[in-house]
Structures are given as structure tokens and as C-alpha cells.
Nucleic acid binder design. Structure first.
Lengths: 152, 152
DNA sequence: CTGAATTACTTCAAATTTAAACTATTTGAA
DNA sequence: TTCAAATAGTTTAAATTTGAAGTAATTCAG
């Protein structure tokens, strides 16, 4: 039984949207995670590899922002990727506080290898929506995310 | 520079949508979390209170499914809520393996009190989209989430 | 120039979360 | 009926994540 106007029309609409958005993202995330584990990396590690692979070398701080992850966590994630020799830390010469992170050759190879497969997986999951629906969901999510980003 | 057709048109579209969806959900989640903390409960605790408040007593397993959380975690979350006397465990008489969880009077009071405020917060965050956009984002998220739920 | 405030990253402790092993109970096939 | 398999929940250990404190480097107002 779905109660209406429990908190007012606007609030009900917003709550309803948020529940659905959160569930869709969580479920999609769990399924992509199952795929990611097959490559022997964690979700966080995969995210870092993805960002570095697409955007090239970034500072640790930039990586944090892209991934919406705390600094303390990113240090650990990069530590572990470095142990696997998938990324390397390059101290910045301009600003000695800054550390650049970039993919190693091995990291690039892994990135190239697994991303094609992972893209297939994501495409498969997304295919429950039509291409038009995917565009629209992307557009609305982007608008929501970009607008809220400013409030963080 | 946005590269096109990196993984094929369909995969690119799906990846693009997924990135935006994940970011929107993460950002929205961080902002609602800031609000939730003001009430002195964690996000997971709040989620359980919300579900119990809206749906009434549920078994621990049902709560796990609603919240997309592991059983071991839900045990801890309910333990902590029980320490605060916000929920109580009621052993099922029909099936002695089963434990029902329900709000206490104190829990109901808290639920009634904080949910109006939280609904306002969510409505405020969502207001960066028009009501029509919220409907559409909700509709598409629901379709995506419900379809993928089956694959878990 | 100087030093107070800011910034970038790391370290540490605590909280959260998961997955696997375990207990207790129920179900169902032989 | 009986016992193997399945189910519900708890416990445990390990991994992840966060936030706060700490270190080092930079910036900028005076």
C-alpha cells in the first residue's frame, strides 16, 4: 500500500525518485562489481585504473575528486595498485607536495585488456533500457549530479 | 577531449550513462548523509528505520533485501538500533529460525520526527530538477533497477 | 622578507561492510 | 519416518572506508 501525500506532494515525489535512483545505482553497481572481481582487482582499484586510463596521469587529489573518495582511502588504493605494479607515483617537480599517479606499462596493458570486456558487461546491463532511455537517464543524472556537486 | 566509439557505440553510450548515474547517486547520497548524521544515526541505521517505519515489522532477511545489504551487516545494524531502544527483535512463533524486527515506541517517535525533516532535505536536493524531470528520472531508474534486480 | 594560513598527501584509529564459517531450524525426498 | 539439503540468522576475521591528526611544502598578507 503506497501512501500518498505523506510529506507533501513535492517531498513525496523527491523521495520516490531518490529511492529508485539509489536502488538502480546500487544494483547496477553490484552487478558490475561481480564482473570487476573476475579481473582480480577491487572496485576502488578498478575505478582508479579506469580514470587514469582515460584521463592520463593525475594527482592523488584529482583522483579523489573524480572517484568521490576520501584522501586516506585513495592513498591505500594507490599503495595496493603500486604493489601490483599497475601504477606508479611520480613526485611533481613543480610542487613538491604533489604526487602524480600514472599507469605503468603493465597497468596500461591490463587497462586495455579488461576495459573492452567490462564495457561489454556494462552495455549488456544497460540494454534493459532502449538507447533513447539510456540517453535520457544519462542526461537527467548528469544534470542532477552536476548541480549537486557544487553543494559538497 | 571526449573520445567517441572507443568501445563501440552501444558500449560508449552505456558507459557514459553508468558514470553519470553512479556519480549522481553518490553525490545525492553524500548530501543526504550529511542531513542524516544530524539526527545521530548512521546511514544504514536510518535506512532500516525508514523501511520499518514505512512497511511495518519485517524479518531480518527481508530488511537485508530491501536495503541491499549483507546479512552479517544487518545483524550489526539491528544490534545497534536495539541498544538505542529504537527497534526490538521479536522471535517468530511460526518459524523459530526467523526474527522479526519492529520499531519501538521510541523508534516510531524518532521516525515521525526526523522523517518530515529529511523529506524536506531530499525535496530540496531534488529541486534542481523540475517535477517532470524527477518523474522521468524516477521512472527510468525504476525500470533499470527492477530489471537488474532479477540478475542478482 | 616572514610567518600564519592553506594545500597535498600520509598515517592512524575507529567504524562499516562483506564473505565465510557456524548454529539452529525446517523442508522434502527416499 | 529419517536424514540430507536448504534456510534464517549470528559470529568471526579481514578488507574497505572514513575522518582526524600529522608532516611537508607553498602562498600570501603585512
Amino acid at each position: 500500500m503506497k501512501t500518498t501525500k505523506q510529506y507533501g506532494k513535492k517531498a513525496d515525489k523527491a523521495l520516490s525518485m531518490w529511492v529508485k535512483l539509489a536502488r538502480a545505482a546500487a544494483t547496477f553497481g553490484q552487478l558490475t562489481d561481480e564482473d570487476i572481481r573476475r579481473y582480480g582487482v577491487t572496485q576502488a582499484q578498478f575505478g582508479a585504473l579506469e580514470t587514469l586510463g582515460h584521463l592520463g596521469p593525475l594527482t592523488l587529489g584529482e583522483l579523489c575528486k573524480k572517484q568521490l573518495v576520501s584522501g586516506g582511502n585513495m592513498t591505500v588504493v594507490v599503495d595496493n595498485l603500486e604493489k601490483e605494479e599497475l601504477v606508479e607515483r611520480i613526485p611533481s617537480t613543480e610542487d613538491r607536495r604533489v604526487v602524480l599517479v600514472q599507469l605503468t606499462k603493465k597497468g596500461k596493458r591490463l587497462f586495455d585488456e579488461i576495459f573492452v570486456q567490462h564495457a561489454q558487461c556494462v552495455a549488456d546491463l544497460a540494454s534493459v533500457l532502449t538507447e533513447e532511455e539510456q540517453d535520457e537517464l544519462g542526461r537527467l543524472s548528469k544534470k542532477l549530479g552536476m548541480s549537486l556537486q557544487k553543494r559538497l
